[in-house]
Amino acid sequence: MAASAHGSVWGPLRLGIPGLCCRRPPLGLYARMRRLPGPEVSGRSVAAASGPGAWGTDHYCLELLRKRDYEGYLCSLLLPAESRSSVFALRAFNVELAQVKDSVSEKTIGLMRMQFWKKTVEDIYCDNPPHQPVAIELWKAVKRHNLTKRWLMKIVDEREKNLDDKAYRNIKELENYAENTQSSLLYLTLEILGIKDLHADHAASHIGKAQGIVTCLRATPYHGSRRKVFLPMDICMLHGVSQEDFLRRNQDKNVRDVIYDIASQAHLHLKHARSFHKTVPVKAFPAFLQTVSLEDFLKKIQRVDFDIFHPSLQQKNTLLPLYLYIQSWRKTY
């Protein structure tokens, strides 16, 4: 089996927390979720979201995140109150960019949308954001926290390059993509939290790379249903696996070995980020709550012996909000 052949990389499970039942964490995340308004986002309300009498641009960002990046939404709820709305805006910006690729039928249209967001970032730093909910909220975040323009532009530029429907040539190319998107998002989150620390940035770099790799793995069944495969070609070739094997949902050992190798790289990034947690300011830990969902996925895929098409991998963990709150309460990542 794939797991038994390579099992030495995987460390002990961390979500089991001995003695936790003896201490009762304060009510927090679930209460916040219940208090949030929840009407559906419609095209009509989106168009009017920044106008008078609408929910408001902040509510639009929150709803977009809740629907399109639920794990990011849950993590954002546990940030300090003064930072929450800015991170909602930042993550909503990322969602807007991420959904361009799947929402257009022609690359030219995707490039036009990316050009809109490039100009939007430029206009935000000229205090002239367009009348668009996410743009307005992002402008507020930039003004409030003096966010670095370079990180925002890196996210747009990398998403634009990724409009080509090509597999990553190697794991390094996937890591570079993750660094310029997910890690950049974390650098900006640290700025919102008021953290300027080399060790925190180092952790953000590795956690962002782990996030990018896990996202690529999780999306494999969806991409396969659209006749697309984006997994690193070098690892596929190493194990003699073709793109057609993934399109046919082949579950042979060599296919699972490909998934094992890729998942192991995410695991190593996560492990390395945690190896120097004592040197990272505690104030930075809330920015890294996504490690909970990353670890949850890596454990699940290990349990199914790296069968990327196993139905259990597509099921939401209903206990994730609780695990996130516990992680926040324990002040760790």
Rank of each mutant, 00 (worst) to 15 (best):
S45F: 12
V46Y: 15
A47C: 15
A48I: 15
A48R: 15
A48W: 15
A49D: 06
G51N: 13
G51R: 09
G51D: 13
G51H: 14
G51V: 08
G51K: 09
G53N: 11
A54H: 13
D58V: 09
H59Q: 12
H59N: 08
Y60V: 10
C61F: 07
C61M: 12
E63V: 06
R66I: 05
R68A: 12
D69P: 01
Y70A: 08
E71N: 11
E71T: 12
Y73G: 00
S76C: 12
S76N: 09
L77N: 03
L78W: 04
L78R: 03
L78V: 10
A81N: 14
A81S: 14
S83P: 12
S83G: 14
S83F: 14
R84E: 01
S86E: 05
V87C: 14
L90A: 05
R91G: 07
A92L: 04
E96G: 05
E96H: 08
E96W: 03
V100H: 05
K101I: 12
K101A: 14
D102Q: 10
S103T: 15
V104R: 10
V104I: 12
S105M: 13
E106K: 06
K107R: 10
K107L: 12
I109W: 07
G110T: 08
M112T: 15
R113F: 04
M114A: 08
M114C: 10
M114N: 08
Q115V: 08
K118G: 05
K119A: 09
T120C: 14
D123K: 09
I124Y: 02
Y125S: 03
C126L: 15
C126F: 14
C126T: 15
N128E: 11
H131S: 15
H131W: 11
Q132A: 12
P133G: 07
V134K: 01
I136K: 15
I136Y: 13
L138H: 02
W139S: 08
W139H: 14
K140S: 04
A141I: 04
V142Q: 05
V142S: 04
R144L: 10
N146Y: 08
N146R: 13
N146T: 13
N146Q: 14
L147P: 02
T148L: 03
R150F: 11
R150W: 08
R150H: 07
W151R: 08
W151L: 07
L152K: 02
M153R: 13
M153V: 12
M153Q: 14
M153I: 12
M153F: 12
K154L: 05
I155R: 01
V156G: 03
V156S: 03
E158K: 04
E158H: 13
E158D: 10
E160I: 13
N162L: 11
D164A: 12
D165E: 13
D165I: 14
D165Y: 07
A167H: 12
A167V: 13
Y168S: 04
R169N: 10
R169Q: 11
R169P: 14
N170M: 04
N170P: 00
N170L: 03
I171G: 02
E173L: 04
L174A: 02
E175T: 06
N176Y: 14
N176E: 13
A178W: 02
A178R: 00
E179S: 03
E179Q: 07
E179H: 10
N180P: 02
N180L: 10
T181C: 12
T181K: 04
Q182T: 13
S183H: 01
L185E: 04
L185M: 12
L188F: 05
L188Y: 02
T189V: 13
L190W: 00
I192N: 02
L193Q: 04
G194C: 05
I195R: 04
I195M: 09
K196A: 11
K196N: 07
L198Y: 05
L198I: 14
L198S: 04
H199Y: 11
H199V: 06
A200G: 04
D201Y: 04
H202E: 05
A203R: 02
A203V: 11
A204K: 01
A204M: 03
H206M: 04
G208W: 02
Q211K: 11
G212W: 00
G212N: 02
I213Y: 07
I213G: 00
T215R: 05
C216T: 12
C216G: 04
L217M: 09
L217Y: 02
L217F: 03
L217E: 01
A219K: 05
A219T: 08
T220W: 03
P221W: 11
Y222L: 10
G224H: 14
S225F: 15
R227C: 11
K228I: 12
F230G: 05
P232N: 00
P232A: 02
P232S: 00
M233P: 02
G240H: 14
G240M: 08
S242A: 12
Q243N: 04
E244R: 04
D245K: 07
F246T: 04
L247R: 07
R249M: 08
R249C: 15
Q251E: 15
D252K: 12
K253H: 13
K253F: 14
N254T: 12
N254E: 02
R256D: 00
D257K: 04
D257R: 08
D257E: 07
V258I: 09
V258Q: 01
D261S: 08
D261Q: 11
I262S: 03
I262L: 15
S264V: 13
Q265C: 10
A266C: 06
H267R: 08
L268R: 10
L268H: 10
L270T: 01
A273Q: 00
A273P: 02
R274K: 06
F276P: 04
H277V: 10
T279W: 11
T279K: 13
V280M: 07
V280D: 02
V282L: 10
K283S: 14
A287R: 01
A287S: 05
F288H: 00
F288W: 03
F288R: 00
L289Q: 08
Q290C: 10
V292P: 03
V292L: 13
V292A: 09
L294E: 01
L294R: 02
E295Q: 11
D296F: 08
D296E: 11
K299S: 11
K300H: 11
K300G: 08
K300A: 13
I301H: 00
Q302L: 06
R303M: 08
V304G: 03
D305H: 07
D305Q: 08
D305I: 02
D305V: 00
D305S: 07
D307R: 03
I308C: 08
I308L: 13
H310Y: 04
P311T: 09
P311W: 08
Q314T: 10
Q314G: 09
Q315Y: 11
N317K: 09
T318F: 14
L319M: 15
L319K: 12
L319G: 06
P321C: 13
P321Y: 03
Y323I: 15
L324N: 04
Y325K: 10
Y325E: 04
I326R: 09
Q327P: 00
W329P: 01
R330T: 11
R330K: 12
T332M: 12
T332S: 14
Y333G: 01
